[in-house]
Structures are given as C-alpha cells and as structure tokens.
Simulated assay, not measured.
Amino acid sequence: MSRLLSRRTLLGTGVVAALGGAVGCAPVQTKYQPSGEGIVDVVVPYGTGGGTDTWARFITPYFAELQPDVDRYQIENLPGGETITGTNAFVRAGVTNGRQALVASATTYFQSMLGQSTAEFDFARMEPLALNGTGAVLWTSAESGIRSIEDLMGNATQYRYGGMSASGLDLVPLLALEALGANVRGVFGMEGRGPTRLAVERGESDLDFQTTSSYLSQVKPKVDTGEAIPLFAVGSLENGEVRRDKNLPDIPTFAEIFEGLGHRTERQELAYSAFQSFVVPGFFYQKGLWANAGTSSSVIETYDELVSELNQDDQFLEEAKDALGGYDLVSGSDAKADFRRALEMDEDVLAFTKTVLEDKYDAVLD
C-alpha cells in the first residue's frame, strides 16, 4: 500500500474531518494562533459539507503526504458574510511563511470583483498555490420551445432562467444571455443545482446551468433521448485561449457563439467583456488554495512542485476523478497571469455588471 493510499484511507475514517468539525464551530479569531509544528492551518470560509469544503478536505492530505516537514493540514471552517468573514480573517492574519492557507471558490472571488464594501481582500494581489477548474453547460428542456441558441437572440417570448443567486455563479450564464440580447427573466432562491435542474424538467423554468459532472450524469442521458438540448458550454482555458472542453467536445463554447455573431451592440459587447472576466475565476479556476500577498517565493515554488508531482501520479489521478470533476490540478504560477488579467475589468464593464444585477435582478450590492 502506497503512502498516498494510506493517508487517503486515514481520511476515510473521518479522523481529519472530525478535527475540522471541532474547530468549525469556533468563533473567528482576531489574532492568528498556529496549531503547532508540522501543521498547516487552512481557512475555509464556507460551512462544512459543501463542495469547497469537500475539495479542501480531499486535496490537502495529498499535499501533506508529499512534504516531510508537514504532518497534516488542519481545516478551520469560518463561514459567514457570503464567505467574506473567514477570508477577511485570513488576510488580517497576514501569514506569509506557508503555515496558513486559504481555500477559496468563485463566490469569494466574486465578492472582491464586485467591490463589496466589507471585503478586505484582493485576489489580484494574493498568491494562488493550486487551482482546479470545472466546465458548465447551459441547457433547456425540449418542452421549453427553445430549439437552439438562435432562439435566445432578441427573442420576443420571455424565457425563465432558474438559479440560486444572480451575484453568485449564476452571474456567468446571465452575462452570456445579456451578450446574446436574450429576453430572460431570472427566478432565484433555489437551494442548489439539483433543484434548478428539476425546475426545468418540471416546466417551472426554461434554462439551467450545470457543471460538467452534473451535466454528464443528470442531463446528458436526457439529451440522448431528445428530452433536453445543450445550448453552450463555457469551455476550458488553454494557454490563455478558450477551447472546447475535452469533457464536452461536441458542445460549442460561448466564445465560439459570440464571435460568430454579426452586428453586436455596445451593450452586448459590455456583457461579453464582463462574461470573459467572471468566467475565469468562476469556472476555469473555480476552487483554489491561496496564500497572502508577500508570501515567500520558496512556498510558491513548493506548491508548483507538489502540483506537478500529483499530476504525474496515476493513483492520485484515479482517486481524484470525482473531487476534481475530470479537470486538472493547476499550479498557481501557471494560472496567475490569466487569473489576474480577468480581474482587471474596465470601470464601465464593472458598472454595467452592477447595473444589470441591481436593476434587472434586484441583487443587493454594497
């Protein structure tokens, strides 16, 4: 039995999860207190059991196993304020020696990008250590009356998009629909992607956005029977260029669709620029392990090596299929330029995005 497998087996007993759960109920610390020698503290600004928390608990034991001076990563869940509470606590601590890290996801990135007044963090300055993206598909039911993406270009019939929150991950497909000039009404407040999918299947909404893994397992079988229709995928980022998703090779990317349009209004161009910015942290690099600005270059180089080693480990790749969603683990150094470029939105693009959220979808931004 390999060392990686033995560590993963230990996780399965719930030992590390129990440690994380024990600190998960603790109040936010005003001053960082290291857990001890050989322990890397990890702030997860989400509650236990969600996708980001699960990702953190899966990936960190592999990092620990490959570092002789690290015994374990200790998860501390600090939810609140739509992930702002825990992330603020992390940046206030200002640890730059690699003994504390942050696990962040799209919700956290968007708080910073949208200029939420209580967010004290800036991912354009922080250091990504390891990132993991995912794809996604906009789809519809055959009963909706939508037959192709062309039916969403200046459509007279108003279609319903069902989602969780306009300012969360749903912002990406909403901006794509704005770029098409689609006549769409948002229906929000659903509890997850399962309910948004079921809403389309029941005829309660017309459009839904599912990550690749959920699309392949829950929607693709209905595509095969003619009950569902895929409209576009976000694709994946390769060397700074959007390509078709290797897991969804037959579905065109939104970039392909938009670039093939004829006349485009200024509003459509603004929407597409916003889409391009938010899709990078929202999907291409959706989850990640982060360090504070000013972190030692030796720490960053260590994670580059760890990611490279894991990506060449067949056992890890097999065990990581579900956790990584069929996508690669990416070193922070390789992704940093693309990530930071996406955050450099023009003021008019940001203003447009906020206007759409506030005026069309009644999102509260401060």
Score class of each variant (00 low, 15 high):
residue 10 L to D: 14
residue 11 L to I: 10
residue 11 L to N: 10
residue 13 T to A: 07
residue 14 G to K: 06
residue 14 G to Q: 06
residue 15 V to M: 14
residue 16 V to S: 07
residue 24 G to L: 00
residue 26 A to F: 15
residue 35 S to D: 06
residue 37 E to N: 08
residue 40 V to D: 03
residue 47 G to D: 04
residue 48 T to C: 08
residue 49 G to V: 15
residue 51 G to F: 03
residue 54 T to A: 15
residue 59 I to G: 04
residue 60 T to V: 09
residue 63 F to I: 01
residue 67 Q to D: 12
residue 72 R to C: 12
residue 76 E to S: 15
residue 78 L to H: 05
residue 78 L to S: 07
residue 81 G to P: 02
residue 82 E to S: 10
residue 83 T to P: 02
residue 84 I to Q: 00
residue 86 G to Y: 07
residue 86 G to S: 11
residue 87 T to K: 01
residue 91 V to H: 05
residue 92 R to Q: 15
residue 97 N to P: 03
residue 103 V to I: 14
residue 105 S to K: 06
residue 107 T to N: 07
residue 107 T to M: 10
residue 110 F to K: 05
residue 113 M to Q: 04
residue 115 G to A: 05
residue 116 Q to H: 14
residue 117 S to W: 06
residue 117 S to Q: 13
residue 118 T to G: 09
residue 119 A to V: 14
residue 121 F to G: 04
residue 121 F to E: 00
residue 122 D to G: 15
residue 123 F to K: 00
residue 130 A to T: 09
residue 134 T to I: 05
residue 134 T to C: 11
residue 135 G to W: 00
residue 140 T to H: 08
residue 141 S to W: 04
residue 145 G to K: 03
residue 148 S to W: 04
residue 153 M to R: 13
residue 154 G to Y: 05
residue 155 N to C: 06
residue 155 N to D: 03
residue 156 A to M: 13
residue 159 Y to C: 08
residue 159 Y to T: 02
residue 160 R to F: 10
residue 163 G to S: 15
residue 164 M to T: 12
residue 173 P to S: 06
residue 178 E to Q: 13
residue 181 G to W: 03
residue 182 A to Q: 02
residue 186 G to I: 08
residue 186 G to H: 01
residue 186 G to W: 05
residue 187 V to K: 07
residue 188 F to T: 07
residue 190 M to G: 00
residue 191 E to Y: 08
residue 194 G to R: 02
residue 196 T to H: 00
residue 197 R to K: 12
residue 200 V to Q: 06
residue 202 R to M: 13
residue 205 S to K: 01
residue 211 T to C: 14
residue 213 S to Y: 14
residue 215 Y to C: 03
residue 217 S to L: 11
residue 220 K to D: 05
residue 224 D to N: 06
residue 224 D to C: 13
residue 225 T to E: 09
residue 230 P to E: 05
residue 231 L to A: 10
residue 233 A to L: 13
residue 241 E to Y: 05
residue 241 E to F: 03
residue 245 D to V: 07
residue 247 N to K: 14
residue 248 L to E: 01
residue 252 P to L: 04
residue 252 P to K: 11
residue 253 T to H: 03
residue 255 A to G: 09
residue 261 L to H: 08
residue 264 R to C: 09
residue 267 R to P: 01
residue 267 R to F: 03
residue 267 R to K: 14
residue 269 E to D: 12
residue 270 L to G: 00
residue 276 Q to F: 13
residue 286 Q to Y: 06
residue 288 G to P: 02
residue 297 S to G: 11
residue 308 S to F: 06
residue 308 S to A: 15
residue 313 D to T: 12
residue 314 D to E: 15
residue 316 F to Y: 13
residue 316 F to N: 01
residue 320 A to Q: 03
residue 322 D to F: 11
residue 331 S to R: 10
residue 332 G to F: 01
residue 333 S to A: 12
residue 333 S to T: 14
residue 333 S to V: 11
residue 335 A to Q: 02
residue 338 D to E: 11
residue 341 R to M: 13
residue 344 E to N: 10
residue 346 D to H: 11
residue 349 V to I: 13
residue 353 T to L: 01
residue 355 T to S: 15
residue 356 V to W: 03
residue 356 V to K: 05
residue 356 V to D: 05
residue 358 E to L: 07
residue 361 Y to W: 12
residue 362 D to G: 11
residue 363 A to W: 03
residue 365 L to T: 09
